[in-house]
Amino acid sequence: MLKLDIFLSALANGLLTGAVYALIALGLTLIYGVLHIINFAHGATLTLAMFAVFVMHSAFKIDPYIAIFMLTPLFFGVGYLLQRLVINPASHGDDSNILLVTLGLSIIFENGLLAIFRSDTRSIDVPYGFDVIEVGNLFLSTPKVIAFVAAFAVAAALWLLLARTDTGKAIRAVAKEKTGAALCGMDVEHIYAVTFGLGTACLAIAACLLMPTFLVNPRIGNAFVLVAFTIVVLGGMGSIGGALAGGLIIGVVESLSGLYFGESLGQIGIFLIFLIVLLFRPTGLFGAKA
């Protein structure tokens, strides 16, 4: 019975964390689906956002859940400008250049943070950090449950935005037929930057949801970037539903392999999935084009 409880609690925890992973992957897959580029700086940008949450909390006593409303627009702007002023002009439209430019950005973010904050691991202290909700025999961390619900809410909002608004329609048009959209007078560069901004904004939200229960140090993005890529590859590049499902699966895999193989090997399961999916089924579990 005890064994089952431990298993169930690991499962539940995995699902809860997985929802935030899904949110991170959502940003990545959105950018991929529209711009057809792989943003290697995604993990480092998340780290940047997490440090932003940390600074707002420790210097200005702003609660992470309040910070969502400031950091989301801020990071939208950061993403918009990065795409418009750095990534697009520097890469001359070449895929491997984009990869290298975003790698350059991730190096700059990561080491800039290292220079400022040093390599110490930091966390924030919120009064509700250890609150739990009891569900049957399970004790679920309240901030994680909030994160779970919020992540799905953001995914739904994003879906609505894409499906129902004019901006969303423009994004989908550009994703499908870039030249056609340009011929119809759409500002493709603007739409690209907006998409990149949206993807980056997802990271700000994810950072705010993560910080009450997570630790941050400048190198943490490395772990997240591969996790996010694994989810995206697993769910099928560019698919929002795939990213959600993939996120939950990866959360559970990480949690269970942590339970059975110990903390230090917990991430191995994720990378193995990544390698197996890419090497043996390059289209992802849900069949979207790789």
């Binding site: 750095v86 520097a90 290298l100 430019v101 790698l103 350059g104 950005l105 991730s106 190096i107 700059i108 990561e110 080491n111 800039g112 943070l113 290292l114 220079a115 040093r118 390599s119 400048p218």
Partner: peptide, 14 residues
């Protein structure tokens, strides 16, 4: 200061 050289590398790469 740790990392400053790498920041320069990143800028150089871009």
């Amino acid at each position: 200061i740790p990392g400053v050289d790498l920041v320069v590398f990143g800028v150089l790469l871009i």
